[in-house]
């Protein structure tokens, strides 16, 4: 009588025993890497209705972030500027530029310019810009080098783990209070990407001008600070 289970079936338990855990680990790793905001969100760069360039305005012309995002120090929300802010200058320069047509229309009719939102936390998380700015966390720590972006892209994952990484140890991200909008202060702060690391090995990375200052900055001894920052790590700090 032939065997009900052919001989090769003897290997099934072994295969299951070995491959099963492997597949499990693989699945976990897969979700870990591909479902995490640093994979799904970083790099989100929607097309905007007006080809407004931070590289030109904030980088080359050196406009301070607060010229346009003027509520950032006072409010939770960093306001996207109304057309009137653009018209301060664009009633004088590039007055007929077709690229600026939506801005002029908005200024004349009151219709908003339909900017596309880039950074967005889920509604169940609470975020407020003003205490971060008051504590001396630079825009660059959370938004990257905006002054080099022609079109704004997300530079950081804005995930809960990312918030907590800083909240548990804010020290390396703190800077003098008047340097918050300075994009190039302590350039070395941002985490090294692989390319940066390679460049460093090859010795071709440009030394950051103010890197030295950043290393010596001790926020505990800064007379400008009236209190030491205490970022919340309890759930209710951000889920209220």
């Amino acid at each position: 009588m032939p065997a009900i289970f052919p001989r090769w079936t003897n290997k099934i338990p072994l295969a299951l025993g070995v491959l099963g855990p492997l597949a499990g680990v693989g699945l976990v790793l897969f979700v870990w890497v591909y479902f995490s905001p640093s994979f799904t969100d970083v790099g989100y760069r929607p097309e905007q209705p007006v080809p407004f360039s931070h590289k030109l305005h904030a980088g080359e012309m050196g406009l301070d972030c607060r010229y346009c995002h003027n509520t950032v120090e006072r409010a939770a929300h960093a306001a996207i500027p109304p057309a009137a802010t653009c018209m301060n200058c664009h009633s004088q320069v590039k007055i007929d530029s077709p690229k600026l047509a939506p801005v002029r229309r908005s200024y004349n009719t009151g219709e908003p310019v339909p900017w596309v939102r880039v950074h967005q936390l889920p509604d169940f998380a609470y975020f407020d810009h003003s205490p971060h700015i008051a504590a001396g966390v630079g825009c660059a720590s959370c938004h990257g080098r905006i002054d080099t972006m022609t079109v704004v892209a997300m530079d950081q994952p804005l995930s809960m783990g990312w918030c907590l990484d800083c909240h548990r140890n804010p020290e390396p991200h703190l800077r003098p209070l008047d340097q918050v909008t300075n994009m190039s202060w302590g350039d070395s702060e941002t985490e090294d990407t692989m390319i940066d690391a390679l460049r460093k090995l090859a010795g071709t990375s440009a030394p950051a001008e103010t890197a030295g200052e950043q290393q010596t900055y001790n926020y505990r001894e800064d007379p400008e600070r009236t209190r030491l920052p205490e970022p919340p790590v309890a759930c209710s700090g951000c889920h209220r």
Partner: peptide, 16 residues
Amino acid sequence: QGNPFPDPPVHIIQNM
């Protein structure tokens, strides 16, 4: 990872 893309990131739990 980190390459620019133009489409909105996926939100699985929309109503939250």
